[in-house]
Amino acid sequence: MSVITVDDQITIALSVRDRHVSAEWYQNTLGFQLVHHIDEAGWSELQTNTQGVALGLGEQVEPQPGNSVPVFGVADIGVARKALEEADVQFDGDTETIEGMVSLATFYDPDGNALMIAQNLAV
């Protein structure tokens, strides 16, 4: 069963207090390149210096340090989620959709580590 891979990109998502300040830090300190700020979604994304690896910054009032979430792209989030649920994978709530942008669903591995699947709706 391979429902996770759709492209050559993985995004590591971090919770931060201020995406704009954090994005500037990652640009100035580590040389990452800003891809975009999506203010209505509370999301910023940077391309790291490693091909195929992006860094996503999600704004949180009280971020939990050390909490990173790998986000795997899927072609069809409904199909991927159903296959994972049939394998008894536990999800954290419903799939969230930001119209014209992305659909996201958070799930957990057997040790409780958060992972996410995402379908790009902008294509």
Rank of each mutant, 00 (worst) to 15 (best):
residue 28 N to G: 07
residue 102 V to T: 05
residue 16 V to L: 00
residue 37 H to P: 08
residue 8 D to E: 13
residue 5 T to E: 14
residue 23 A to F: 08
residue 53 V to S: 02
residue 32 F to E: 06
residue 78 G to R: 09
residue 115 L to M: 06
residue 91 F to K: 05
residue 93 G to Q: 01
residue 11 T to E: 11
residue 20 H to Y: 08
residue 114 A to L: 02
residue 117 I to N: 02
residue 74 V to Q: 10
residue 16 V to H: 07
residue 44 S to A: 07
residue 58 G to S: 07
residue 43 W to R: 00
residue 64 Q to I: 12
residue 44 S to K: 04
residue 46 L to M: 03
residue 98 I to T: 06
residue 100 G to V: 06
residue 37 H to C: 03
residue 76 D to M: 02
residue 26 Y to N: 03
residue 56 G to M: 00
residue 22 S to A: 05
residue 14 L to W: 13
residue 123 V to G: 15
residue 111 D to N: 13
residue 39 D to S: 10
residue 105 A to P: 01
residue 13 A to M: 12
residue 95 T to F: 05
residue 89 V to P: 04
residue 83 A to M: 04
residue 69 V to G: 03
residue 59 E to C: 00
residue 4 I to P: 01
residue 1 M to H: 12
residue 74 V to M: 11
residue 108 Y to P: 03
residue 123 V to N: 14
residue 25 W to T: 06
residue 80 A to Y: 08
residue 14 L to Q: 09
residue 76 D to K: 09
residue 3 V to N: 08
residue 2 S to K: 09
residue 47 Q to D: 09
residue 29 T to R: 06
residue 87 A to D: 06
residue 47 Q to M: 02
residue 43 W to K: 02
residue 14 L to C: 01
residue 43 W to N: 00
residue 106 T to N: 12
residue 113 N to A: 13
residue 109 D to T: 02
residue 117 I to P: 01
residue 114 A to P: 06
residue 53 V to E: 02
residue 71 V to Y: 11
residue 117 I to R: 02
residue 58 G to F: 14
residue 120 N to D: 15
residue 34 L to Q: 10
residue 66 G to P: 01
residue 48 T to P: 00
residue 76 D to G: 00
residue 106 T to A: 03
residue 81 R to S: 10
residue 37 H to W: 07
residue 8 D to V: 00
residue 106 T to S: 14
residue 17 R to A: 10
residue 49 N to H: 09
residue 95 T to M: 00
residue 117 I to Y: 14
residue 49 N to L: 07
residue 100 G to Q: 10
residue 111 D to V: 04
residue 70 P to M: 04
residue 57 L to R: 00
residue 121 L to F: 13
residue 65 P to A: 03
residue 22 S to H: 12
residue 51 Q to V: 04
residue 121 L to N: 15
residue 25 W to K: 11
residue 43 W to Q: 02
residue 74 V to E: 15
residue 80 A to Q: 06
residue 77 I to D: 04
residue 81 R to E: 10
residue 82 K to T: 14
residue 113 N to I: 03
residue 77 I to Y: 06
residue 118 A to G: 10
residue 21 V to H: 13
residue 122 A to D: 14
residue 42 G to D: 07
residue 7 D to T: 13
residue 82 K to G: 06
residue 74 V to D: 15
residue 19 R to Y: 08
residue 54 A to D: 09
residue 53 V to Q: 04
residue 9 Q to A: 11
residue 112 G to D: 11
residue 107 F to H: 13
residue 53 V to I: 14
residue 108 Y to T: 12
residue 11 T to D: 14
residue 45 E to I: 02
residue 123 V to S: 15
residue 17 R to W: 12
residue 73 G to M: 05
residue 117 I to V: 04
residue 45 E to H: 05
residue 24 E to I: 09
residue 35 V to S: 07
residue 46 L to S: 05
residue 88 D to N: 08
residue 104 L to N: 08
residue 92 D to E: 15
residue 58 G to L: 08
residue 85 E to C: 06
residue 109 D to P: 01
